[in-house]
Simulated scan of single mutants.
Amino acid sequence: MNRNHPTYRMSEAQAALAARYGVTAEYPPDLTIPLPELFPKRAAWTVRYAVGERILDVMTWGWPRTVPGARGPRETQVTNVRNLESPMWRNALSKPTQRCLVPVTSFSEYGPGEKGNLPLYWFDVPSRPIFSFAGIWRPAVEGAVFAFLTCDPNSVVAPIHPKAMPLILHEEDEARWLNGELNDLVAPLPAQLMTVGAPE
């Protein structure tokens, strides 16, 4: 099964998310969320602080960016944050109000193989049915958007995708991320906490 982009899954309903993240505020209905496999430019759940408490929020995955093209400027979406020193990300990373958590139940990466028929592998964290990518967000013309950070891969992900892996936070570090801490949080989740399934 091939797709245009690696994806992630969030297969839990919002009641489970609210319990997992300690959200007591009202949240939007499930009707705003697509199928559990989430793609760029689609709506997805995030968790952030608002008026001093955690809320569930629906945002679009993909940070708009205008780039030059043969027929003039065009807009693309950047889905992940790799270079933390880039001016594109520096402002959002410096503001705790623009931090968010991206709830995940599993994520995918393409492995090596024949072009046009790359195998897709799914990764999960068995001890944590819902885990979190470290994300940033901002308002946009059509509503809030988000992207999530990546880091060097661990020994489970590296043989399949040696370039990077999503920055998965330890549960005890989620509040630190939302409160604006950064440096020591940018590290791969230990490999012994993860598993990978057979290729699709």
Rank of each mutant, 00 (worst) to 15 (best):
S155K: 11
W61C: 11
P166Y: 00
T24M: 12
L120H: 03
I33A: 04
K95Q: 10
M165F: 04
S155W: 02
R42L: 01
G52Q: 08
Y27R: 06
T76Q: 14
R138W: 01
G52R: 05
R54I: 01
E171N: 10
V125C: 03
A19I: 10
F107I: 12
T79H: 08
N154Y: 08
P64L: 04
P64T: 05
F148C: 13
P188S: 09
K163F: 03
A191F: 03
L56K: 06
D30W: 01
R176I: 09
L56M: 11
A140P: 13
V196A: 02
Y110W: 13
T79K: 11
W61S: 06
H5M: 11
A198D: 08
V78L: 15
S94T: 06
H5V: 09
Y27A: 06
Q192A: 10
I33M: 06
T195I: 10
I168K: 00
F148Q: 11
M165Y: 07
M194G: 00
L93Y: 02
G69R: 10
Q77V: 10
T24Q: 15
D30R: 08
K163G: 02
L17M: 07
P87H: 05
R74S: 11
P153M: 12
A187S: 15
W63H: 08
P199V: 06
N179E: 07
A175E: 14
A16M: 10
W177G: 04
W177D: 03
Y8F: 15
A19T: 13
L93S: 13
M10Q: 15
I55F: 00
T79L: 12
A147F: 02
R9Q: 12
E181R: 09
I168T: 04
A175L: 08
W177R: 05
V23P: 05
R42W: 02
T150S: 10
